[in-house]
Design a protein around this nucleic acid. Structure first.
Lengths: 200, 200
DNA sequence: CTAATAAGATGACATTTGTCACCTGATTTT
DNA sequence: AAAATCAGGTGACAAATGTCATCTTATTAG
């Protein structure tokens, strides 16, 4: 019997997945969570065989949870289950060493299969991910990401300045560099591009 | 027996909802679609009692489908089932006269109940929506929305100018007005605000 | 030890952006 | 018919943005 934990912030999908997987004779859902923090504490306590983990969740995101589980060498295997194939997410997940990365755009039947494969020691990845543009690495440094994140909210150079304790010239230099890297023509387009790719 | 149609572009949720609702003894799922266009043609042909409809779908979005169904006075009742409570969406849905508007953040159990209520002639709305900020109307005129949509992609004033055949002064006047209405301090912040509210 | 890098800063400059007051023709209202 | 409204437009101005070459100071690598 495979014990499962599901972390997913969309209640309806959480409920639906839970009910359906529980119908499989060799699986049992032993816990659920609607956000990353709950998920982390419950998983550490329950030690399920496999965790299905959404990425975009409140408080702690799924990748952060997976990272923390790895750091504490928790025994549970993690399968990331997410909507979009943002390059940055996939890249990070692979680095963390998750056991699977599936898209919510796949069939549910594939999900149960994937769980069994992971239990058998294999790793499973949605085929859409393995090739493709998806593998593009995030070209932005952490500082650049931080600055672009703020710029994307419409913060002015001056506001960024005082949040990050940098001179205004420096901030503008960073933004200039970001614009170059993303082949954009201004900070707004840079934000749009990076947003779509999951780089900020 | 209530006949159902489900339109939802996230394959996993579509499958999960289909399977679960089919388990209800008084319901039968007679069709599914992954995008708005398929949904529209299938619904017109199959005439299900109730359609569950996601909003953000490829080709045609759920609100557009609902609108078209209403225009052709199709007999099927529509329940919008969406992730976020964007004010603009809800406002539009109500104007179209849909029979229900539920958030994917609700429990699945509520869904089956809602379907039965709608069949009984009632209208159902997620309680989160009925009060709240959600009722904020979109303060932007269609032209303003169009301009802000372009600005949000990082297009410059000059580019917007040549896409919409307006003078650059006019575009800047519009943007200035938009910034005022949204209480932002520049076009980027205006785009962030409007995006979050579902106004563009 | 010395050279190479990286993070941050300056200053100067051309553009772009945002603001505002006011103008012009249509189209509605009254 | 006169007045109001609406979509667009001008022009002028200050401020913000983007670009570049150059500089300083640590830190790191050879």
């Amino acid at each position: 019997m495979i014990s499962l934990f599901i972390a997913e912030d969309q209640r309806m999908l959480l409920g639906a997945l839970g009910s359906l997987l529980d119908l499989e004779q060799d699986m049992k859902v032993i816990g659920q969570a609607l956000n990353g923090e709950e998920a982390l504490t419950s998983i550490l306590k329950l030690e399920p065989d496999v965790c299905l983990m959404d990425i975009e969740m409140p408080v702690l995101n799924g990748l952060e949870v997976a990272e923390e589980l790895a750091r504490r060498s928790a025994p549970s295997k993690v399968i990331i289950l997410t909507t979009f194939a943002r390059p940055g997410y996939f890249e990070r997940a692979v680095k963390i060493g998750v056991h699977g990365y599936l898209l919510k755009d796949g069939e549910i039947d594939e999900l149960a299969d994937a769980i069994r494969k992971v239990m058998a020691g294999k790793r499973v990845f949605s085929p859409e991910l393995t090739f493709d543009v998806i593998r593009e690495e995030n070209p932005l440094t952490p500082k650049e990401q931080e600055i672009l994140r703020l710029a994307a909210l419409g913060k002015t150079t001056k506001e960024i300045t005082s949040e990050l304790y940098l001179s205004s010239g420096t901030v503008r230099n960073y933004i200039s560099e970001i614009i170059h890297k993303l082949d954009a023509k201004n900070r707004t387009e840079a934000a749009a591009i990076a947003g779509k790719k999951g780089w900020i």
